[in-house]
């Protein structure tokens, strides 16, 4: 399996990349890790005329807390996230997800920016970003913009990014006392894309009342999906077993899975129900620690 011919361009700065992209037009694609894009090119599902390699751009690979935000550079690989002490200690939901994403060699190359920019509801990071209410920072021909995650995913492989926009950073509200998150996906075998996955992030106040909650779903809709009805039910409440039960039920009702090789629609709804409940419990447990 061999990709069709294309022209390769290496960008050494964000500016250069944007200039190249503006010049080459719609037939140009950025490549960061290339572990979503190149497989599609090998199968000739994607046949871009130009590839602009952004992986060599300096300064886009970092994980840090800055003000009240956790900031992750777009070129940070999933392996770098896996081994990062800050994430391990304060954002265990990241470890949950990365451990279940692809395999170690893929994670050595695949970037968080690419995982999100790909706009694929089967990828794991989008659900986490929804749950944690990330902002996506992008640079384009007309400057820098910050896109709330709820405005980011537009459709199947479609995002708010213009063709020449580069996703540069992910910003996530900093973990604080009383917050916690968890992610799990059911997969047919290790490394598989999710049959269904659920990311949950909760923030409790001192009395244990839920101040904020985010629930993102993986691969049970055409576009990465937030479980709005479930979140509303929990916000401002003390989260009880009954509420968790109800949210699981809502998740199974509101998700939009299709029957395929991974299972029937009914099975996937049931899986979403179960994982939603389990991840709510796990997130709560972590929030209460």
């Amino acid at each position: 399996m061999i990709p069709a011919n294309f022209n390769y361009h290496k960008a050494t700065s964000v500016k250069e990349a944007i200039a190249l992209s503006s010049e080459l037009g719609e037939e140009a694609k950025y490549m960061s890790g290339g572990h979503s894009l190149l497989p599609m090119m090998k199968l000739r599902f994607a046949t871009p005329e130009h590839i602009i390699d952004i992986s060599k751009i300096e300064g886009l690979s970092y994980i840090k807390e800055d003000g009240d935000m956790l900031k992750i550079g777009a070129l940070t690989t999933q392996t770098e996230m896996e081994h990062n002490t800050l994430l391990k200690e304060s954002y265990p939901i990241m470890g949950d997800a990365i451990w279940l994403t692809a395999d170690p060699s893929v994670r050595n190359v695949g970037t968080i920016g690419g995982n999100i920019a790909h706009g694929d509801a089967a990828n794991d990071q989008p659900a986490l970003m929804l749950a944690m209410r990330a902002n996506i920072v992008a640079e384009g021909a007309d400057g820098t913009k910050t896109i709330p995650i709820d405005e980011f995913f537009h459709g199947f492989y479609m995002t708010a990014l213009e063709p020449s926009d580069i996703l540069t950073e992910i910003q996530i509200p900093k973990a604080k006392k009383g917050s916690g998150g968890a992610y799990h996906k059911v997969e047919r075998k290790v490394g598989d894309y999710a049959t269904a996955g659920v990311a949950v992030h909760v923030e409790l106040d001192d009395s244990g009342v839920c101040q904020q909650v985010g629930i993102g779903l993986t691969n049970v809709s055409a576009v990465p999906m937030r479980l709005e009805r479930g979140e509303e039910l929990l916000r401002g409440q003390e989260i009880t077993d009954e509420l968790i039960e109800q949210v699981g039920q809502i998740a199974s009702e509101d998700c939009e899975p299709e029957s395929d090789l991974r299972g029937s629609e009914a099975y996937k709804r049931s899986v979403v129900n179960t994982i939603t409940k389990r991840m709510l419990n796990k997130a709560l447990e972590r929030a209460r620690q």
Binding site: Y8, H35, K42, D53, S105, N108
Partner: peptide, 19 residues
């Protein structure tokens, strides 16, 4: 196809030579 690229395991079938 796994090789070490700058010390990390990489699937060489999913990597462009130019890169």
């Amino acid at each position: 196809c796994t090789i070490l690229l700058d010390g990390k395991s990489v699937k060489a079938c999913t990597y462009l030579t130019v890169r």
